[in-house]
């Protein structure tokens, strides 16, 4: 019952972010919505694992979180440089670097 309640909230958030991804005036709105949709999907998979009594689903959630991050960064890099193989040094601003590797 409580997992169903959590699932309802998560599904509502998924629907709302999907609406933003479809509406989004700029491409960055869509990427932001997609990234958030991925995060909510991770939560949904985790809750679903408990809902169906199969905690093995958590492995899938963990993997999805990784792929979601890499995918978002890849899309953004493609948008900014137009080439996935570009070396990061060609950026315009003297950036102090980002957290993940």
């Amino acid at each position: 019952m409580m997992f169903a309640a959590a699932m309802a909230g998560v599904l509502a958030a998924m629907a709302l972010t999907l609406v933003r991804a479809l509406l989004g005036p700029t491409v960055f709105d869509r990427v932001l919505a997609l990234n958030t949709f991925g995060t909510v999907t991770v939560l949904a998979i985790a809750v679903l694992g408990f809902l169906m009594g199969r905690p093995q689903f958590l492995d899938i959630a963990l993997l999805y979180a990784l792929i979601n991050f890499v995918g978002t960064i890849a899309i953004l890099k493609y948008l900014q440089y137009g080439d996935l193989g570009a070396s990061g040094d060609s950026g315009k601003s003297p950036d102090a670097g980002e957290g993940g590797r």
């Binding site: 601003s93 102090a96 670097g97 957290g99």
Partner: peptide, 25 residues
């Protein structure tokens, strides 16, 4: 250190209501 600045920028972004847009030294 740059790790310190990155930690600061990430903490700012992690707190809803503030997002770091660009970082310099």
């Amino acid at each position: 250190t740059s790790v310190g600045v990155v930690t600061y920028a990430n903490s700012i972004t992690l707190t809803p209501g503030t997002v770091s847009m660009q970082t310099w030294d």
